[in-house]
Each structure stands twice: as C-alpha cells, then as structure tokens.
Design a binder for these strands. Structure first.
Length: 566
DNA sequence: TTAGGGTTAG
C-alpha cells in the first residue's frame, strides 16, 4: 500500500483486484486485470479466479483458469484450491486432480480440503474418501470439509463417524466443527449429545460466537426445549438474522404462537430486518390465532420489500403461507386473489384453497377447485382428499363423499388413511346415517383411532341416539382406558342430557370427578388494536371487559359457553 | 501480495 495524502491506495494489480472482489465489483476487477500496463502473472490470475469463486461466479473463475493455461502461465498451490471449488462436474474435478498429480501438489492439505468438498458435491464419495485417507497431514479444516460434505448429501451417520474419529485422533474442534455437529445432532433429534456439545462449546469459549449460539438455539428449539433456546438467545450481544429466525421458529415449532408473534414484534424493533424465512415462520402463528390484522401487516411487508418473488419467479412456499393464513382466518376472497395471481402453483397451493373452502362450509367452491385442479393436470395427494372429503362432510354432500372415498384409490391411486375415514364417519354421522357410520367404523382396515370414534359420538349426541352413544362410549373407554380425555365424558354427559337421561348425565360427571378428569375451559379470542386477547370461561381479567362485551355481543363474537359465564 | 471449513423454513 502507498499513502497518498489521506487515503491508502492499493499499490499492485493483485491488491486492486482483491479490493474490487471484496466489494463484489467483478467488472472493475476484470478491467484492472486487463490493464495493458500490468503483467498478468500467476498472482494476478490467482486473484481474479479467487474473486469470481468467492462471489459465487465459479464458471467465470474456471474460464480464467483455462485462459491462464492457454497463455502458458503456470498455476501454483494457491491457484488450485479455488479452481477445484469452481468445478461443478465429476469429470472436471478428475481432470484437475490429474494435473495436481503431475505437478506434485496432490498432498497439499489446502488443495485436499477443496477436493474433498467438491468430490462429495459431485457424487464422487469414494474419491473424496481416498483423498482424505491418503493425505499425510489432516488439519481441522479438512476434517470439517469431510463432515460437512457427508451432511450435505444426507450421510449423517458417516459424518458422525468422522466426528468421533476426529476426537480419537486428538484433533481439537474448531467453532466450525461445533456448528456442523450441532446441526447434524439436531436433524437426528439427539438432544443428549447436543447438550454434551453445548458443554464443550462453553468450555472452549465458543459461546461468544454468534453462529455457534444460533446452532444451539436451533437445536434446543427443534428438540422442543424453548426455554434453553431463549436463554442462549438472550445472551447473544449482536443478534443476527439467523438468531432471530432460529428463536422465532423455535417458538412456532412448539406451537407457542403468542411467543412467535411477541418475538417477531421485538425483531421489528431491532436493527435486523426480517426475510423470507422469518415471514414463513411467523405466518402460521397468525393462521393458528386467526390474527388477521397481523397477517395483513406481514403481507404488506412482503409486498413492499418484494419478498414474494425469488430467482424462480413466484416464491411458491411464501405465497402458500400467505394464502393459508388468509384461508385459515376465513378471508377466502384474499386467498383466492393470491391464488389467481400465482404463476407457479404446486399441489399445496391447490390443497390450501380446497381446505380453506371446506373449513368454512363452502362445499361447492371446494369441489369446484378440486375439478379445476384435475383439469390443470395437477395430481391430487393425500391432503387433497382430506380437503375434498371434509368439504363433503361440512356441506352434507353424502352421496359425493361416498363416491370420492372409492374413487380416490381406484382413479387417483391415493390409499385412504384414518383421516379420510374420519371425514367420512363425520359426514355420515352429521347427516344422520348413524348405522352406516358405525358399520363403516367397525370395518375400517386400519388401527382404531380415537378421533374417529369421537366424531361418531358427537353425531350420536347431535341426533340424540343414546343407545349407539353407549356402545361408542364403551369403545372409546376401551381404546384409552386410563388416559381417556375429558372430551368423551363431556360428550357422553351432554348426550344423556339431550335425551333427558339426567341421572346418567350426573353419573358421568361424578365419574369425571372421581377420576380427576378436568374439562378444558371453553375459550374464545378477539384481536384488538393493541393485541390478541384470549378469554377463558369465567375470565374477567381484561381491563375494558364491559365495553368489550357490549361491543362484541352485537357481532355474535363469543363462544356460547363464554357468553353464559358473563 | 495469494488458498480450504459453519448456523435458520418448507
């Protein structure tokens, strides 16, 4: 570097190329490289190749390597690690590997790590293993390359074997090793070894590294230990996008939807901006809580920041998540607009629409969507038929429902699961075909399922059939004798009440008391400007409760049981 | 003067 008054300017062509590369200005870097007053020696070639590879333009980097060879500039041990990384086909790496042998560079550990990395990427596992075993000196980067390479191609067990061997050979772990192994243990759901790595990380002083903390948050989150995840998150000084996304996902994966939205709000107040991953993690929370206002805000954020598009056109996953949010919140109009605007749709996009219409009782629209899906040559899957059958159930399309149950296997090759049978039982039961529903429930060629029998018990209550209700209730007790939830007791007691058998209704309540079965209180919620309020039966905690009750009564907002409690 | 490795969704 030379000092020119008050700024420092790079003094050589390589320094200039490096500077432009680091600023992602490859066009400028090429201009410097082509400057006729400078010699294009091995240093200059190494710098330009490294620049392209580092900026994700491997093919361009490879072209410069070819030019280098054609003009007779000899590559050296600094050229090859980049060139090897730039290869994207097996035969290309093989060819370069051949050159390395000719030049006596095949045992260089830097080149070796790049070879291991690339061979594993291009389906050359055996070659990667051979390179690894034959290297006389194996440093921590090389071990990490092997572990990561195996992980990326899904060979998690092999990655763990390498990690164990690393310990046996006395290689000290780097922070890179710990993040990788944590990610592997997370995929395997191995919380015990994960905790052990957490201990090692703390001992080695890696806790201050944000990437290591993020990997720990992800592990604890995915293993449903949200409190541990939160503790690590709070300890990070400079939280980055990974930190926020990991902690938000951790809460959503544990169905803590309130927590998800609370953290998202905090994130908006930080200097880190949400991205597509944040949005896809937060939207299901809005769907579950029917928090339409938050969902709309997120949709707005997505539009303003152009997040709905990626290099392939529409970001299908994100658009599906937005559509699902609107559908679950009952806004089928908005879901439909997004659906129509999406140029790329997948089977999930169709399923979301069918499910949404079915959930809100629009049976005709759901089936119409199904027919459009078939016309568009999209193959329906297991989820599609849950939507279709649930549409038939909610709309009372008994004849069509029966027909779909047969057709789904014969015509579309989708074998009915317990969810499909539950829809059919529910449909027959609601429509009053209790005998047929019971016969079918007994004949189902799958393991007995509590929800299915509960659906039938619900139908018995609806139609006041205490005789069949008794039989079904007995079946439910057999299925879950000890852990019988409160739901079936409540249904049974309510059923006796409906048919005027009050003594038996009281008897069921007495049994519940004896067995200490508690009823989960009925609850409802309402979204106001300052947040989401959940009301349980008998709950009088909200500070503007009376005003709220007056306001909401007119809209029929509350669940019956909550209304009775006021 | 220059080189190789890590964490988040679905």
């Amino acid at each position: 570097m030379v000092t020119s008054g008050f700024i420092h300017l790079p003094s050589s062509i390589t320094s200039l190329i490096n500077m432009y590369s680091r600023c992602n200005q490859m066009e400028e870097a090429v201009l410097v490289f082509r400057d006729p007053y400078h010699e294009r020696n091995v240093f200059a070639y190494n710098a330009i190749i490294a620049g392209f590879v580092a900026n994700g333009l491997a093919a361009d980097g490879f072209q410069f390597y070819k030019r280098m060879r054609s003009v007779g500039v000899m590559p050296d041990k600094f050229t090859f690690p980049c060139v090897v990384r730039a290869c994207c086909e097996f035969m290309e790496v093989r060819k370069i590997h051949g050159c390395l042998f000719k030049m006596g560079l095949e045992l260089n550990v830097f080149v070796g790590s790049a070879l291991v990395n690339t061979y594993l990427k291009v389906d050359g596992t055996e070659d990667a293993e051979k390179v690894f075993e034959e290297l006389p000196e194996r440093d921590v980067v090389l071990w990490n390359a092997m572990i990561n390479g195996y992980t990326k191609i899904g060979h998690l067990n092999k990655a763990v074997v390498v990690f164990k061997r690393m310990g046996e050979e006395g290689i000290s772990l780097s922070r890179f090793t710990t993040t990788s192994i944590l990610s592997i243990l997370t995929s395997m759901g191995d919380i015990n070894n994960g905790r052990a790595i957490h201990g090692i990380v703390t001992k080695m002083g890696y806790s201050s590294c944000v990437a290591v903390s993020n990997a720990l948050i992800d592990m604890y989150g995915k293993c449903k230990h949200t409190e541990d995840a939160l503790m690590i998150f709070e300890m990070i000084n400079e939280k980055d996008l990974f930190s926020w996304n990991s902690i938000i996902s951790a809460h959503e994966q544990c169905d803590d939807h309130d927590g998800t939205l609370r953290l998202f709000g905090k994130m908006l107040g930080s200097r880190v901006l949400p991205d597509v991953i944040t949005i896809t993690a937060v939207l299901p929370a809005c769907s579950h809580l029917a928090a339409l206002m938050h969902g709309r805000e997120i949709h707005g954020y997505m539009i303003v920041n152009g997040l709905g598009k990626n290099e392939n056109g529409d970001d299908v996953l994100l658009n599906n998540a937005i559509m699902d949010m609107y559908a679950k919140c009952g806004c089928m109009k908005n879901a439909d607009i997004i659906f129509d605007l999406m140029r790329n749709k997948d089977v999930a996009s169709w399923n979301i629409m069918i499910m949404g219409y079915a959930m809100h009782g629009y049976g005709t629209e759901a089936l119409d969507m199904f027919h459009r899906m078939c016309e568009a040559q999209i193959k329906p899957d297991v989820v599609t038929f849950v939507g279709v059958l649930s549409a038939c159930s909610h709309a009372g399309f008994v004849h069509q429902g029966r027909s779909f149950l047969t057709r789904m296997e014969l015509e579309f090759g989708v074998i009915p699961t317990i969810e499909h049978y539950t829809c059919i039982i529910d449909m027959l039961g609601r429509a009053g075909h209790l005998g047929e529903a019971y016969d079918l429930a007994q004949r189902i060629p799958l393991e007995d399922n509590l929800i299915l029998w509960m659906a039938l018990l619900g139908a018995c209550r609806l139609h006041g059939n205490a005789e069949l209700g008794n039989v079904v209730g007995e079946k439910i007790t057999q299925l879950e004798p000890k852990h019988c939830g409160s739901g079936s007791y409540i249904l049974m007691s309510s059923l006796y009440g409906v048919v005027g058998r009050y003594e038996e209704a009281l008897e069921v309540r007495r049994t519940m008391k004896e067995q200490n079965v508690k009823k989960t209180p009925g609850c409802s919620w309402i979204e106001l400007k300052d947040g989401l309020y959940v009301f349980s039966m008998g709950d009088r905690t909200h500070h503007e409760l009376n005003a709220l009750i007056n306001c909401l009564c007119g809209f029929g907002y509350f669940h019956d049981e909550v209304m009775h409690s006021f």
